[in-house]
Computed example of a mutant assay.
Amino acid sequence: MKKLALVFLAGISFASAKAQFQFGAKGGLNFATVSGSDAGDVSTRVNINLGVYARLPLAEKVSLQPELVYSNQGAGFDKGSIALNYLNIPILLRYYAGSGFAIFTGPQVGFLLGAHYKYNGNSLNAKDSYNSGDFAWAVGLAYKIPSTKLGIDARYNFGIANVEDRAHTGMTGSVRNDVFQLGVTYTLFSTGR
């Protein structure tokens, strides 16, 4: 088993030596809502996401892209909204499809930073009504603008975990985060070819 692990690590090291490691910043818009049996009649809430990413080469056209992202999510409803602020950590497998395009997918773990209901101009802390963690699956498409350090990133984060704290709310159903993100990436640092 140790020999197999060493061969695997040596393969990654060889691929990394020939490929490009990148570190960058990202930001954009969230088009967020919630789904599930306890979600009720909700609408899309538009807000921001900001973060950093690294691209670690695994093979010629494949890289691992971990990210650290502040994401303002939630949903709108009649006369108000719920703001759910997360620190999300997606771990994405990225495939370079050619002509500047890449596709990616992977799991995302989120940590709840804050939750606030806004209704008729009033704000109420609602953090106790939500679980401290979240789990989602991301799928997306990226495009690197030629001869620049800029890229465009579009993804959908499918909520998998129930984010509602049933012990606090007394509800028996579920609420899941669903977020479409559209943003810009900027490569701050790059090595290799």
Rank of each mutant, 00 (worst) to 15 (best):
A5S: 02
L6W: 01
L6A: 10
L6T: 03
A10M: 08
A15M: 14
A19H: 06
F21M: 04
G27N: 05
G28V: 09
G28F: 07
L29G: 15
S35A: 13
G36Q: 08
S37P: 10
N47G: 03
L50Q: 02
G51I: 14
V52E: 07
L56H: 02
A59V: 10
E60V: 00
L68I: 15
Q73E: 15
G76A: 14
G76I: 12
G80C: 10
S81W: 02
N85Y: 01
I89P: 04
I91M: 08
I91Q: 03
L92V: 04
L93D: 05
G100N: 07
F101E: 11
I103G: 06
T105W: 09
L113H: 14
G114A: 07
G114W: 03
Y117P: 06
Y117G: 02
N122Y: 15
L124N: 12
K127W: 03
S129N: 12
S129K: 11
N131V: 00
A138T: 07
K144P: 02
S147N: 14
K149I: 08
L150A: 09
G151H: 11
D153I: 05
A154G: 14
R155A: 00
Y156F: 13
I160T: 04
I160M: 02
A161C: 04
D165M: 10
T169Q: 04
F180M: 08
L188T: 00
S190A: 11
